[in-house]
Amino acid sequence: MKIKVYIDKFKESKIVDCESIKEIIKKLNLNLEEFIIVKNGELITENTKLKDKDEIKFLSVMSGG
């Protein structure tokens, strides 16, 4: 599947060829402690199933205070 992934921390989007969110995390070397995951404006868990052409956002949980 081709999934469009946006990572707000790096302000970049990329297309990732993968079958699951866990695969995206592994391929992009992301740490799940540092992100929440959003699909179509809704919060999802890392176990949510994906469909071809889904768009996923990884929003950084960090803030400077």
Binding site: F35, I36, L43, V61
Partner: peptide, 18 residues
């Protein structure tokens, strides 16, 4: 992460720079 989840669900977070 829990605080960010709550803030997102309550619309309290804006996309901010670090």
């Amino acid at each position: 992460k829990e605080v960010m989840t709550y803030a997102f669900l309550k619309g309290l977070n804006e996309e901010l720079n670090e």
